[in-house]
Design a binder for these strands. Structure first.
Length: 839
RNA sequence: GCGGACGUGGCGGAACGGUAGACGCUGAGGACUUAAAAUCCUCUUCCCGUAACGGGAGUGUGGGUUCGAUUCCCACCGUCCGCACCA
């Protein structure tokens, strides 16, 4: 057999064969050990992009590799199909979000199939279909009944022109993205999940996730943000009514004698109560509410405060009164929504005190003699020795902290406590294209859960997007229902669930998909936890934390025995590309430019183009590559192979024409080897060793997801085979090479396998074993160093003893020359590796 | 500001504390061919040298530990990422 490998024919042929054989359908009843390989499922945005190709190729190689190793593999695919872009498309193109989404799914499914991924399509799911989200509603009600769901007022971004709620990403420079109107903050009753109940568990659980990147664990740890401190009360004087004390949380109780004011969040109940009697304060609070809810906006605001008429009594000195301010930089969501300000040792407090002329008193110093040093320019926030602090003087920060907590607890005015930065998860979205929240609001009975026999609450399809706002709010046929509890008139909840809820349990549904319930516990536990989860690092916090929470919540309800959903996590790098700019600064796409020598020119005009830096592919920089024409030209295997080559998988991969050409060349090279070998007798011992070393190296590389190393090893073996003389060994090496590349280049491998005379498919072939005895050489190369510098290399039999190695090295002509007749001072011998002569 | 990662040829990148630059890309030269494509071979870190199976330098910078450091430690410089009025 001769000629080139033709992917156009082979890709289709083998994809059909795998389909017929149901090769990738996972069997839960299989006696084989099970492996669950999962890539983060895609949002059906329209077309597959190159980042998807890289992500799914990595998972696919692992899935095929494990399968060849004799494991029963679950490798499913589905669609994270709810979300805002579908509604945007609906408004812009007058197409229903469902139609737009389902069409995208169909396109993208075809594109994925074109790449020959070993996916179990029988388990495909889309979160926008009632047979998925209906079960999600059931799980939501489970959490609701367990007290893990509650409703409270919360702020949203409100577009006053479009009369609609905006997500943070829809707020640009403080203005609505569509209307351009300045965004306001509005209070709205919304549903929350009590993720904070699990803050400690989620934090502790990170410790068991050995196969997660440290980076991601650290990000989650910071996000949960545990800090230890003191929670205590300031008694208040001069309050008009009600509250006679305010709760404070501090991580620095040791600085309590440095307090010069108390500051309360504008949304704190005390602030609101005071505002009722103080119009100036009410105005100040209203001022604080302007602008969006995004972090960037809150961050840039100037620190402002409003002095109230009340005073706080220092807990350690009844005669000491502190002024109480309402301040915009204090957050109701963290701690208790109130702080005491220590200007000397906190930069924010320092700025605030400087602005309002409050005392700045040093209570921490590097040593006791520096108690009198003034604080100049900025706050000193480091630890040290307590000074000017009565009974704390001389104690370290740590000791002083413990002492204040001890006194607070003894005196009954406070206690050591823990605060978390993590907040409860707001899941209400004022949008149509999401999972309906299965709640009915009745004037008489309040919020009532939809009875389970009425699930799923199906999203109505007959809606229009010609007006702003959520179309569910004006769909009376759907919205108006009778109360399940009293039978009176009631309204459905028209908010839908955050799409992160959809992605918090899809991996369970993949493992088990009964029609009558979300999942079967035993089936799920056959597969979960996911052995290897692969996706972008952009999901390091939210998605992964929510999925971990959801799993723990179900565990808490007794619906699952596992606590962590993802045993192994891998975050892959992005695919990048060069950028190009025309003279006027506008971005040019790769197909608009051409290379001429070292320069780039605009194809159409011939004008030189500036080569920009290599960046993440993005529409705005116009440096994207559509995978489809590339696959059509080079075939699935070359594209897959390139996705694994060159860069380590956790780092960015630069897309280049040269890279895909190189991959394509290798595919043809393997094909040539498999189709042109002449059978011959005899053993080629050197090739045999090389072969077994390669099997060992590729196996280890794939186990560690080091695909680039597996690729390099495959190249080396191919070169060694090409150089070897015909022999039985060579024929076997070719056959093994085909097995080794099969996970990455499966179509080529099947075609080559058949060409080698095999009658079964390579997907069902076992992974090659290596003989450990062949990994060690009889002859080794000894590095000969003089004073740590390489001076010679000598071939020697393996296992040479130290004395013999030393003698060999000293006999070297070069060593003799460098020693100039002197005896070496010392000789270091590393057996079978090197001899270092210290002259 | 806090936290983290990274820094190696023209480029992407390899190197259990032990021969730095595997493998790929690019480039140069050659073979095959009427020619081209494809393929194959040789060379490709830098400097000195006609060349050597010569010498020297070299893994961001400066120190340290070690017989020996790309690898471990300290400081600095740079790049990237994450987080942040968090009390």
């Amino acid at each position: 057999m001769t000629g080139r490998f033709d992917p156009a024919v082979a890709d289709v042929r083998w994809q059909a064969r795998w389909d017929e054989a149901r090769s990738f359908v996972a069997d839960t009843a299989s006696p084989k050990p099970k492996t669950y390989v999962l890539e983060m499922f895609p949002y059906p945005s329209g077309r597959i992009h190159i980042g998807h190709v890289r992500n799914y190729t990595m998972g696919d190689v692992l899935a095929r590799f494990r399968r060849m190793q004799g494991r029963e593999v679950l490798h499913p695919m589905g669609w994270d199909a709810f979300g805002m872009p579908a509604e945007n498309a609906a408004m812009e193109r007058k197409v229903h979000p469902g139609e737009w989404t389902r069409r995208n799914i169909s396109t993208m499914r075809d594109q994925l199939k074109r790449l020959g991924f070993a996916l179990d399509w029988s388990r495909e799911l889309a979160t926008c279909e009632p047979d998925y989200y209906g079960h999600e509603q059931e799980l939501f009600l489970d959490l609701y009944e367990a007290g893990l769901v509650y409703r409270k007022e919360s702020e949203v971004n409100w577009d006053p022109v479009d009369c609609t709620v905006l997500a943070n990403e829809q707020v640009i420079d403080g203005k609505g993205w569509r209307s351009g109107a300045p965004v306001e903050r509005r209070q709205l009753a919304q549903w929350f999940l009590k993720i904070t109940d699990f803050a400690e568990d989620l934090l502790q659980g990170l410790g068991e996730l050995d196969n997660w990147p440290d980076k991601v664990k650290l990000m989650q740890e910071n996000w949960i943000g545990k800090s230890r401190g003191l929670q205590f009360r300031f008694r208040l004087a001069g309050t008009p009514s009600g509250a006679d004390s305010v709760e404070i949380f501090t991580t620095r109780p040791d600085t309590i004698f440095g307090a010069s004011f108390v500051a309360i969040a504008p949304t704190h109940p005390i602030a609101e109560a005071l505002a009722n009697r103080d119009p100036a304060l009410a105005e100040f609070i209203a001022e604080c509410r302007k602008g969006g809810t995004s972090a960037a906006e809150i961050e840039t605001a100037e620190k402002l405060g409003h002095r109230t008429s009340i005073e706080a009594i220092h807990p350690l000195d009844p005669n000491w009164r502190l002024p109480v301010y309402i301040a915009n930089f204090v957050l109701m969501e963290y701690g208790t929504g109130a702080i005491f300000g220590v200007p000397a040792h906190d930069q924010r407090d320092f700025e605030f005190a400087s602005k309002y002329g409050l005392p700045i008193k040093r209570v921490v110093a590097a040593s006791a003699d520096e108690a009198g040093q003034p604080i100049v320019g900025e706050a000193e926030s480091m630890d040290g020795i307590a000074v000017n602090s009565q009974f704390l003087d001389g104690l370290t920060t740590e000791q002083a902290t413990a002492e204040v907590i001890r006194r607070a607890e003894a005196g009954g005015w406070g206690a050591g406590s823990t605060a978390y930065r993590l907040r409860d998860w707001g899941v209400s979205r004022q949008r149509y294209w999401g999972t309906p929240i299965p709640i009915i609001h009745c004037k008489a009975c309040g919020a009532v859960a939809v009875p389970r026999d009425q699930l799923p609450v199906v999203l109505p399809e007959d809606v229009t997007f010609d007006q702003p706002g959520n179309p569910l709010d004006r769909h009376d046929g759907w919205r108006k229902v009778s109360c399940p509890s009293c039978g009176g008139d009631a309204l459905r909840e028209t908010d839908t669930l955050d799409t992160f809820v959809d992605s918090s349990w899809y991996f369970m549904r993949f493992a088990s998909e009964p029609a009558d319930k979300p999942f079967d516990r035993d089936e799920v536990e056959q597969w979960l936890p996911v052995d290897q989860y692969i996706g972008g690092v952009e999901h390091a916090i939210l998605h992964l934390l929510y999925a971990r929470f959801w799993t723990r919540a179900l565990n808490h309800l007794g619906r699952l025995s596992i606590a962590e959903p993802f045993k192994g996590l891998f975050t892959q790098g992005m695919v990048t590309h060069e950028t190009y700019r025309a003279g006027d600064g506008s971005w040019l796409s790769p197909d608009e430019v051409r290379r001429e020598g070292d320069d780039w020119i605009h194809v159409e005009s011939g004008i030189p183009v500036t080569l920009g830096r290599v960046e993440k592919m993005s529409k705005s920089k116009r440096n994207t590559i559509d995978p489809e024409p590339i696959i059509a030209r080079y075939g699935a295997d070359a594209v897959r192979w390139f996705m694994l080559s060159d860069s380590p998988p956790e780092r960015d991969l630069e897309w280049s024409e040269g890279g895909i050409e190189g991959a394509s060349r290798f595919v043809q090279r393997v094909w040539r080897l498999a189709t042109t070998d002449v059978s011959a007798e005899g053993v080629d011992e050197a090739l045999e060793r090389k072969l077994h070393k390669t099997i060992a190296a590729v196996t280890e590389a794939l186990d560690g997801l080091q695909f680039n190393k597996a690729v390099a090893q495959s190249y080396e073996l191919a070169s060694a085979i090409e150089k070897a003389r015909p022999s039985a060994t060579r024929l076997n090496a070719i056959r093994t090479l085909v097995l080794l590349v099969a996970p990455a280049a499966p179509h080529l491998a099947e075609e080559a396998w058949a060409a080698l005379g095999e009658t079964t498919m390579i997907v069902d072939a076992p992974w090659p074993e290596f003989n450990p005895a062949l990994l060690v050489e009889d002859q080794v190369t000894l590095a000969i160093q003089v004073n740590g510098k390489l001076r010679d290399t000598l071939s020697a039999p393996r296992g040479l003893d130290r004395g013999a190695a030393e003698a060999l090295a000293l006999a070297s002509e070069k060593v003799q020359r460098l020693l100039e007749g002197n005896a070496p001072r010392k000789v270091i011998v590393v057996p079978d590796r090197l001899v270092n002569i210290v002259a």
